[in-house]
């Protein structure tokens, strides 16, 4: 009982916590105030509460596909925001002064969206135990431990990445954020398949014997790069297209930056 809570909450917390530690590193690099964290978390918890409270009517939307489409929309928004954030990091590296207020709200909205989805699930999980008082306490203790482990892992990531030299940090961050946004797109694709908006297919491969999705490493890779043991063709296609789009955008931004640089020199 206690252990289950640890695992469930760890899974939910991990994704948001990893993203937040990356954002913290980069807001330091981009000289942006870190107060988006508090605002994002508080507003995110509020909207998670609203989402959790209205899960039933939301599920009934659009002929019963409301939950899938809402989650997919949240995931796709995060993917797009990460794409924009990546271009901000590159602009900054090129020395261009881009609106810091926009980057600030971008980070805040990203945190709100991620916490809305993960937080509502946690709240519903805990709410289920209010029917059995003694278990609720155990579930709560387990949740605190799970959240603690999730936060610890993200703190480790924070210091690991934070100690990289600045020249390495930006490319590493861009790559990790690209992979996370690919994972978001892959999750959204899964929602569309579940709601039968995209067709379900036989898995393209099965790597579950090699690395199970429910193992600790599997969960960590799921949060970081959207690892799936048995993905379908569409999921793989959408995942890789999102990576290609991100790579294209990054290339264009870099290319134009260089063109402007050489123009200035002339």
């Amino acid at each position: 009982m206690l252990l289950n809570s640890v695992v469930i909450i760890l899974r939910e917390v991990l994704e948001a916590a990893l993203l937040i530690s990356l954002f913290l590193i980069f807001s330091h690099l981009l000289n942006i105030s870190r107060s988006w964290l508090i605002r994002g978390v508080v507003l995110g918890m509020c909207s998670a509460l609203i989402y959790a409270y209205h899960t039933e009517p939301i599920s009934q939307w659009l002929d019963g596909a409301g939950q899938e489409l809402t989650n997919a929309a949240l995931e796709l928004c995060v993917a797009v925001l990460l794409l924009v954030f990546n271009t901000r990091i590159i602009f900054h590296r090129q020395g261009a002064k881009k609106n810091p207020a926009l980057t600030y709200s971008l980070l805040m909205f990203c945190v709100i969206l991620v916490i809305t989805r993960e937080g509502s699930e946690m709240l519903l999980y805990l709410y289920g135990f209010t029917y059995v008082p003694r278990q609720f306490e155990l579930a709560l203790i387990g949740s605190v431990i799970g959240a603690g482990i999730g936060l610890s892992i993200s703190i480790i990531l924070y210091y690991l990445l934070g100690n990289l030299p600045t020249s390495l940090l930006a490319p590493t961050g861009v790559v990790i954020m690209t992979l996370i946004s690919g994972g978001m797109v892959s999750q959204a694709t899964k929602e569309f398949i579940q709601a039968d908006i995209l067709p379900s297919q036989q898995p393209l491969w099965d790597s579950s014997s090699w690395l199970a999705e429910d193992s600790v490493t599997g969960q960590l890779l799921y949060a970081l790069i959207g690892y799936e043991a048995t993905p379908g063709l569409i999921q793989v296609l959408f995942y890789s297209s999102s990576l290609i789009i991100m790579a294209l955008v990054v290339t264009v931004v870099l290319w134009r930056g260089n063109a402007t640089d050489s123009q200035k020199k002339c």
Binding site: T55, S59, Q67, L124, Y127, K190, Q194, A195, D214
Partner: peptide
Amino acid sequence: SPEEFESYELNREKIIIGNSKGFIFIGP
């Protein structure tokens, strides 16, 4: 109480609130 139907093998995950119903598509 709410429940979440989940399967790694089926790649499915859906919350079903207490005393309600929901559906998912599985297969082929």
